[in-house]
């Protein structure tokens, strides 16, 4: 019994120090919730930035994968955590889309957004022997055969595709696959005609020439695949992509957000993180808290126009 009592007292002691002032933040290890499974792209970004930031903050950052509902479970869990700066969440584009579809009970307003880390455009991909030479071939075919061109979709619904469909007034036959690792073989095997994924997800097929990029869905060409023209260049004014950032639960003290923001700035500038992102063909895009918050608001509105 004595032993138990001791433990309880010790626990109370830790509690007291934890809720102490932000001045000595961080006083203990930080938890980073990743709303997708171990081994995926979001997980890799989360783990790497945690690894780079831990030396800067002087405390370990442990990654906790909490999967489910296309990220909804993990992000909701993160939004409901104690706002003491010891539980952070990797926030992904799903925070802008899922709440509007009624598939998530929390939204971006439930977070203090700290930094945007990564922003990647989608790339339109066809197999190397595809008859489509550019995006307009694809659009023309889709116009001639509405609902017939088979599209390997990495998620249902697929916002990359919906943006294009809405802008061009076309309709493709979207077949839902479980992420890029299933959508890409579907195109390679000729079962579907086209897919849209981020450059990092298809970098090895692009390098080996098994897949052909019809265009990248950003305003400017991306440094990772500089030979691929944008859709805008080809006269199709459509952009889309995905992003990942870091957030803390609403109500986290501003001083703590500032400390974390500076730490993540430094982490993103570290050679280790830069190397990792470059090798994975992912783009680092650092936005500070205000820019990030405004950006998410804008994206939420854009996606809202699609689902309504």
């Amino acid at each position: 019994m004595k032993k138990l009592l001791k433990t309880v007292i010790a626990a109370a002691g830790i509690l007291a120090t934890a809720s102490a002032f932000a001045a000595d933040y961080p006083a203990k290890n930080i938890k980073l919730i990743v709303p997708f499974g171990a081994g995926g792209g979001t997980d890799a970004v989360g783990r790497t930035i945690a690894n780079s930031a831990k030396d800067i903050l002087g405390k370990n950052i442990t990654v906790m994968n909490r999967t489910g509902g296309s990220g909804a479970v993990g992000m909701s869990f993160g939004a409901q955590s104690r706002p003491d700066g010891y539980t952070l969440t990797v926030v992904t584009r799903e925070i802008a889309s899922l709440p509007q579809m009624g598939l998530m009970q929390h939204d971006a307003d439930d977070f203090e957004l700290i930094r945007l880390v990564n922003l990647d455009p989608a790339v339109v991909l066809v197999s190397a022997d595809s008859p489509y030479k550019n995006i307009n071939d694809l659009i023309a075919d889709a116009k001639a055969n509405p609902g017939k061109v088979k599209f390997a979709s990495t998620a249902a619904p697929n916002f990359y595709l919906m943006t294009l469909e809405k802008d061009q007034g076309i309709k493709l036959n979207a077949i839902p696959y479980n992420g890029a690792s299933e959508a890409i073989p579907a195109v390679l095997g000729g079962h579907t005609a086209v897919t849209m994924v981020t450059p990092g997800e298809a970098i090895s097929q692009l390098r080996s020439g098994q897949l052909k990029a019809l265009g990248v869905m950003s305003k400017e060409r991306t440094a990772l695949i500089p030979d691929v023209p944008t859709l805008v260049e080809q006269g199709v004014n459509v952009t889309s992509g995905t992003w990942r950032g870091i957030g803390a639960p609403k109500g986290t003290p501003a001083e703590i957000i500032e400390i974390l923001g500076k730490a993540f700035d430094e982490a993103m500038a570290s050679q280790e993180f830069k190397d990792f992102m470059a090798k994975g063909a992912m783009t680092i895009h650092n936005m500070n808290a205000e820019e990030f918050t405004a950006f998410v608001k804008e994206d939420t509105a854009a996606l809202g126009a699609l689902v309504k």
Binding site: G37, A38, G39, G40, A44, S181, I184, P185, L188, G200, I203, S204, Q205, R207, S208, Q210, F276, K279, G280, A281
Partner: peptide, 25 residues
């Protein structure tokens, strides 16, 4: 092909890429 056959292979794919290698042919 540069695509993972299962969840473990997906992590191995990540490991190859981090090492600066291009999985696939």
């Amino acid at each position: 092909l540069g695509v993972p056959g299962d969840a473990v292979a997906a992590v191995l794919l990540g490991a190859l890429i981090i090492q600066g290698l291009t999985p696939g042919p």
